[in-house]
Design a protein around this nucleic acid. Structure first.
Length: 877
RNA sequence: GGGAGAUUAGCUCAGCUGGUUUAGAGCAUAUCGUUUACACCGAUAGGGUCGGGGGUUCGAAUCCCUCAUCUCCCACCA
């Protein structure tokens, strides 16, 4: 039988197992229309956090909806090798064991990394199952598995052969902690508090000096010039002179360059071509010496000549002390500047000159930009289009090499000055032999670097279908239907996938992109480990059930906006499950009879509920088409909680000791299972469970494939029932204010002289109002002076006989308040209608509506006035 | 410095091409309630001159201008 309390944990495990065993998540191409989603692959060693839960709940909702609609739904799961992030984790793990990466060979390190991956890899995919994710697990892909790697090498070679790949010696963003280069997109800038040092440089051969301002005194050993603006009158006398670098003693020229901002600091700039992008440019213009004073790990190099081997930030302190001791510091100011940090290691990024591989992006960007601007790839929310356009129009070449070991090794081999690019070493040798016939494999030196992790993920929508080999799969599932991801990786990932899509398939990778917001806490702070404001995702599922968590995530997630996570919403979700469970218990507890006819009341109630569901279904369809999932869910929540439970079930609920008519019962079962089907994408487990309890003789095996193809039943009951509900609410209000017990049945009079046609011609309404209002009888009358408390709903005047003395003053007070409101209302309408310009210019139906509003308002004023008059008379007599 | 977006009840947000909205929802709040599904509950109620100012229009939360505040993206001056 049905347990008193809903046990989410148990039931969720049961159904997930069932779905898996029946293979409902599997997809193979067939004649049906496909609906495909590729998962944004989480880091292979990651654990489920709130962002994943949001993201994957949305994908699951969309996939389940499509599956219900009879489409061939395919959600491809997988993980990302996450080159730098994983390598950093492994390095840290090894360090804890007392092993230094630098003591290991490449192979030894990779062994550890693979071990780590085998141990922790895929945990996150297990966790997604707990959330209810209906992925086709047989398709699980990994960016570094054979198929995906092959795609990477193929694409690399292809880019090289078409001239879109090159090596360049440039200023790059260097992460001294991971000891690798980073792309521009992997550097996060933020304002940080720092100091501005004003440092005195002596002029060679005189007592004169020049003062420069710098935030990085530790780079002074790398100075090779002092620059001033050519038109700056303060420095004209320094033309042709040299300055002496403090402490270091190097003689450096005073140069004149437009780049210098005369307003900043003293208008003089120290130039360190090896460690600043702009300085590097100046250096090139003036043929300055480049002195690289840092090692790869951010410590001082031999060329620095001071503090060799010590960290740059330690040196900053020590060196500025030295400067001060020697009288070179003029002043030190507090200063706020923009500091770039590595997205993965959080290390302060160091500009550094080095030789790296780049992708020439310009040609790739053109079709990708066009596709988005013309909505061929449609963005939700639209506002992301501008951000995308700006980046695309100013696109810079993509630095794809990384000085790491965990990742796809760059398929390039070197011999003397030549480079040979091929999918593997043998092919490279074949190519190389055309020029050097006697080469052997041993002569070719492989590239030591690996590729940016995004160089494999930008192929994901193609490579998960083995699209470079399996054209049939690709044709069926690709372009994928929608991509669901956070806006924070729009450049790192989304833009590049679109480029790759057009480059290698000639098509967009997905029809639509739904950008989710970031998950934040109630104070709008980003969720982070450091703040400790991120709840444990699995614990939440444990505590509230996956359905509850899914509800909580979706209820607070307006399309595209940030999600302010509040555990209360998850609680609300759990409560909703409880509510639904109890509605089931109620239904299943009724005794059924087929004696007599179904009452008009029940027939009407069911018809009304059916029409409400139809209306909600139409709305839901619209909400889905615009990815307004939050609104869709909330309207279902209201439909089930309020319309179905609070109104419909109360309407049909048998009196104590009575039975429910089997026709009504069958309708209620059907309506509730329809509701479950609608809600299923959002809360898959409880809807499945309830659905099975309702459909004892089920035709299909599972709610997942039970779609409700509804036909329009019209909506002629909606308005009259709204009026009925208003009447009931008013009665309850009066009861509460008058202290009349729910048990006491009252008499209600409705004045037929007014506008009651829509309502009273609907058979069954009377039964509904009587039952819910707990009335003895409803009398339709044209008498105006019935004793009781009157109220107006719509344009109906109702009088409730309370069998107790009426507080005339209080009644008059209420009526007068209402009268004033109505007068104000009618006035505002009158203003419009008495305006010739309105009547002449506004469309006819708008004018007609206003006329109707006024007529209704006047009717209400008339009723109110009559009632006030009557009560006043009564009071005075 | 360049660009985008936002500002509606205590909170989070709807309000889609100006007209049944003197503005809706959920949560929160208050009052009442041991009615035989549910206190993870029921019933009812209160709450906003739609950031300020100006304009267009017969009519503006909705369009335009301006000011204020906030958020984000890009670039970056040491």
């Amino acid at each position: 039988m049905i347990s008193a309390r809903y046990n989410a944990t148990e039931i969720e495990a049961k159904w997930y197992e069932h779905w898996l065993s029946k293979g409902y998540f599997r997809s193979i191409p067939d004649e049906r229309e496909s609906f495909s989603i590729v998962i944004p692959p989480p880091n292979v060693t990651g654990v489920l956090h709130m962002g994943h839960m949001l993201n994957n709940t949305i994908q699951d909702i969309l996939i389940r909806k499509a599956r219900q609609e009879g489409k061939n739904a395919c959600w491809v799961p997988g993980t990302d090798h996450a080159s730098i992030a994983t390598e950093a984790k492994v390095v840290r793990m090894l360090r804890e064991k007392g092993i230094k990466k630098s003591d290991l060979t490449r192979d030894e390190f990779l062994n550890y990394a693979w071990q780590w991956k085998e141990e922790y890899g895929g945990i996150i995919l297990q966790q997604l199952r707990k959330l209810g994710a209906s992925c086709d697990w047989d398709r699980t892909a990994f960016t570094m598995d054979d198929i995906r790697s092959e795609a990477v090498y193929k694409v690399f070679v292809d880019l090289y052969n078409s001239g879109k790949l090159y090596r360049g010696n440039r200023m790059v963003n260097w992460d001294p902690e991971a000891k690798t280069v980073l792309s521009n997109e992997e550097v996060i800038y933020g304002l940080e508090q720092s100091k501005l040092y004003h440092v005195k440089y002596e002029i060679d051969g005189s007592d004169d000096f020049v003062v420069i301002a710098t935030t990085r005194p530790e780079t002074i050993p790398g100075d090779t010039a002092i620059a001033v603006h050519p038109d700056d009158p303060r420095y004209q006398h320094l033309k042709g002179k040299n300055a002496i670098v403090p402490i270091i003693g190097r003689k450096v020229p005073i140069i004149f360059d437009d780049y210098v901002d005369r307003e900043f600091g003293t208008g003089a700039l120290k130039v360190t071509p090896a460690h600043d992008v702009n300085d590097h440019e100046i250096g090139k213009r003036h043929n300055l010496e480049v002195v690289d004073i840092f090692n790869a790990d951010g410590t001082m190099s031999q060329s620095a000549t001071v503090y060799i081997g010590e960290d740059r930030f330690t040196v900053r302190k020590k060196f500025s002390k030295d400067l001060e001791a020697h009288g070179h510091i003029v002043k030190i100011e507090d200063y706020q500047n923009n500091v770039g940090r590595s997205e993965r290691t959080n290390a302060v990024v160091e500009p550094r000159l080095s030789l790296q591989w780049y992708v020439d992006m310009e040609a790739l960007a053109t079709p990708a930009l066009k596709a988005v601007m013309e909505d061929i790839v449609e963005f939700f929310p639209k506002s992301q289009k501008n951000i995308y356009r700006h980046w695309m129009e100013n696109i810079r070449d993509w630095c794809i090499s990384r000085q790491l070991w965990w990742g796809h090794r760059i398929p390039a081999w070197y011999y003397l000055e030549d480079v040979f690019v091929a999918e593997n070493a043998d092919e490279a040798l074949t190519i190389a032999r055309k020029k050097y016939p006697h080469l052997t494999l041993a002569d070719l030196k492989p590239d030591d670097d690996v590729l940016d992790t995004w160089f494999s993920s930008w192929l994901w929508p193609i490579s998960v279908f083995d699209g470079f080999n399996d054209k049939d799969q690709l044709d069926y599932y690709y372009p994928t239907s929608v991509l669901v991801t956070g806006w924070d990786i729009i450049f790192l990932w989304v833009a590049r996938m679109i480029m790759a899509g057009y480059e290698w398939t000639g098509k967009r990778p997905f029809d639509k992109v739904y950008f989710t917001g970031m998950v934040r806490d109630k104070q709008r702070r980003k969720m982070s480990k450091q703040l400790g404001n991120s709840p444990d995702a699995l614990q939440l599922i444990e505590d509230y059930g996956a359905d509850g968590v899914r509800f909580g995530m979706m209820a607070s997630s307006p399309a595209g906006g940030d999600l302010l996570f509040d555990e209360k919403l998850v609680e609300q979700g759990r409560n909703f499950s409880n509510k639904m469970w109890n509605a089931l218990r109620l239904l299943k507890g009724w005794e059924i009879t087929d004696a007599d006819q179904q009452s008009d009341k029940d027939a009407l109630a069911s018809l009304w509920m059916e029409q409400k569901i139809q209306e909600a279904y139409n709305e839901l369809t619209k909400n889905f088409s615009e990815f307004r999932l939050s609104e869709g869910l909330m309207s279902l929540y209201n439909l089930i909680w309020n319309d179905f439970c609070s109104w419909y079930l109360e309407m049909i609920k048998p009196q104590y000791g009575e039975k429910i008519h089997q026709a009504t019962y069958a309708q209620a079962i059907q309506l509730y299972s329809d509701l479950c089907t609608l809600l299923h994408p959002f809360m898959p487990f409880i809807t499945e469970e309830i659905w099975h309890h309702l459909k004892e003789n089920r035709e299909t095996d599972c709610i997942m494939s039970a779609y409700i193809p509804r036909t329009s039943t019209g909506n002629h009951t909606l308005e009259p029932i709204e009026i009925s509900k208003d009447i009931v609410t008013s009665i309850r209000d009066i009861r509460q204010k008058q202290g009349i017990k729910m048990k006491d049945a009252l008499d209600l009079y409705i004045l037929t002289s007014h506008k009651t046609e829509g309502l009273i011609t609907l058979s069954g309404w009377k039964g509904i109002v009587e039952k819910l209002g707990v009335l003895q009888d409803i009398h339709l009358t044209d008498q105006v002076d019935i004793e009781g408390i009157s109220f107006i709903t719509g344009a109906e005047k109702c009088i409730l006989q309370t069998m107790q003395s009426v507080d005339i003053d209080a009644e008059l007070d209420n009526l007068n308040k209402e009268l004033n409101y109505q007068i104000g209302f009618v006035d505002s309408v009158m203003k419009k209608l008495s305006n010739d310009k309105f009547v002449n210019n506004a469309p006819a139906d708008v004018v007609a509506k206003e006329n109707l509003k006024m007529a209704d308002g006047r009717e209400r004023i008339k009723i109110l006035t009559e009632e006030i008059e009557r009560l006043t008379k009564q009071k005075n007599s």
